[in-house]
Structure formats: C-alpha cells, structure tokens
Amino acid sequence: MSTVLVITPTYNERDNLPGVVARIRAAVPAACVLVVDDNSPDGTGLVADGLDGVHVLHRERKQGLGAAYLAGFRWGLERGFDLLVEIDADGSHPPERLPAMLEAAERADLVIGSRWAPGGRVANWPRRRELLSRLANGYVRRALRLGVADATGGFRVYRAAALERLLLGGVESRGYCFQVDLTLRAVRQGCAVAEVPITFVDRTSGASKMSAGVLFEALWRVTVWAWSPRRRPGGRAAPTADEPSLPPRTGGMSLT
C-alpha cells in the first residue's frame, strides 16, 4: 500500500487549518499531514503544533508558496513517502476528492485536482476572478502547448519517483508560477498527467494571497518561457542556498 504525505503550506491560516486537517484525516485516515508554516504572525504555527499527529516545519520567514512546497517535498522524500500531496490550508481544495486523486495516481505520475476539466467548477468566486483564472489557464495552455486544463491548479498528487526527477537541478519559481513550472517539467519529461474534476470553493475566512500583480508577473514568466525555450524550466539551474539538492530516497520511513 502506498504511503501518503499531505503537505499544506500556511501563512496566517489559524482559523482554517484545524478544519482542513480534520477533513483530510476523514478522507484519508492513513495519510500523514505536514504543515509548513512561514512564521505566520497570527500564530498558525502554534495552532499546528497543538494538532495531534501533525508534523510541522517552522520556517523563519515568508518565502513564497513554491519555497514552502520544496521544503515539504524534501521532508517527505527524505522519509520515503510514495505519494506527496499539495493542498491549500484555506479550505478551497476539497480533501474529500483525495481518494479519487490517489486512485488516479496509481496510473499517473502527476494528478491535478482540476477546476476546469469536464465536471470541475468553482463556487463563490467573484465573476472577475473566475474570468482571470480561465483566461490565465487558457493562455498558459496555448503558449506552452500543454494538454492540461488546469496547469495553475495547486491541488495535486505527485508520485515520489517522478517528483525527484522534476526537481533535479533546482526550481527557481516561487509564487503563482510554481505550479506551471512543475506542470511544464512533467509534460516535457513524458510524465503521465491526469486531472480529476473538483469543486473549488472560495475561502470563507482570512485573506487571499492572490493579486492581479502576482498573476501578471507569472504570465510574464510564461511568455518568456514560450518565446525562449532555452529559458524554460527543466533542471538546468543550480540549487539556491535556500534550496539544497534533494538527497536520495531512503528505503523506509522514519517520522519525527
């Protein structure tokens, strides 16, 4: 049976985190949960410490979504997990869809919980935000020639062996573009990519970290990748000081 690590990065999510963790456990009781907290001013890290059976990585400062996930990936790969899950802490990603996504991961290297695949949808989003997301995904899909409906989606399952290959050489993307970066790497490397439709529900508590500026910065980077193939992600860059090379996987798990 595959071992599963669910990684949720947090920054000022103290009101949402306990409920999300409870839903994850109800959906996949055997999964381990890792919270990666970027020193949240609201004390989210302390809330995470108080949740039974939850592992917590406390980071010194906010460095972006991608950096938080990379830290979580390293933690999980070092401990030999077979499947690594990305999920937001704000409740927008439905943990109840995890069983279907994990089942799909038996045949795929990357599974995306997709808002825009047939059967997927969003709820409680302002029309303007939905339009921006649809346009952004359409642009990414066409500019990079990806056959993926939701390349920017952040609800994902990676097979560990595939993830190790995708991360070889380091990943420079940190924010909104992080998901596109890994999707492009997966497609270019011939990984099997599957999409499972989900209903994405807008958060009811706390403030979104997304802004038009962040979105357009990401689309600018996609444009550079589209027009300059040599600058596309693919493992050519050396790891940064905050992103050391990933160690080899160990055979078994040693949770701390």
Rank of each mutant, 00 (worst) to 15 (best):
A194D: 05
L110R: 03
F178H: 12
V187I: 05
Y158G: 02
S173F: 02
V157Y: 08
W125M: 12
A117T: 15
L168K: 14
E172G: 00
G170P: 02
A161Y: 03
A100C: 04
G113A: 02
R165P: 00
F178V: 05
A149W: 06
E172A: 07
P197L: 03
V157G: 06
R141W: 00
A143I: 07
S133V: 08
R156A: 01
Y139G: 13
L215Q: 14
V140H: 08
M101V: 04
G190S: 02
A117M: 14
R159F: 08
Y139C: 09
T152M: 12
T152E: 05
A162K: 06
L110D: 06
H93F: 11
A160C: 12
L110F: 07
G119C: 03
R141N: 08
P99H: 07
L184V: 02
L167I: 06
K209Y: 12
R145W: 13
R127C: 07
D109H: 09
A105F: 09
G175I: 01
M101D: 03
F200D: 00
P95L: 14
L167D: 01
R127N: 10
L146F: 10
A212G: 05
S114V: 00
C177W: 02
V140K: 09
G170K: 07
S92C: 07
R165H: 09
V171C: 10
F155D: 03
E103T: 10
V196W: 03
P118H: 11
R115W: 04
F178R: 04
R142K: 15
E96H: 08
N137P: 12
P99G: 04
V157F: 11
A151T: 05
D109M: 06
T204F: 04
V196F: 04
G147K: 12
A104V: 09
A162L: 07
R145P: 12
V122E: 06
E103C: 02
A136D: 06
K209P: 03
E172Q: 03
L146M: 06
L135I: 15
F178C: 06
H93D: 15
R121W: 12
L102G: 05
P99K: 11
L166M: 10
R141D: 06
G153R: 02
F200C: 10
R159H: 06
A161F: 01
V171T: 01
D181K: 09
R134A: 15
L182V: 00
G206N: 14
P197M: 05
S205R: 15
L110K: 10
S211V: 05
D202H: 11
P126L: 15
A192P: 01
G169S: 06
P126M: 15
L144K: 10
T204G: 03
E195N: 01
A108P: 02
R97S: 07
A192W: 01
G175Q: 11
L131M: 15
H93S: 13
Y139D: 09
R142L: 14
E130D: 13
R188V: 02
R142C: 11
G169P: 07
V196D: 00
E130S: 10
G113C: 01
I198F: 03
A136W: 00
Y176D: 09
Q189M: 08
G154P: 04
V180F: 03
R127L: 13
L182T: 04
P95D: 08
A149F: 08
I112C: 00
M210L: 07
E96R: 09
G120K: 03
L131N: 11
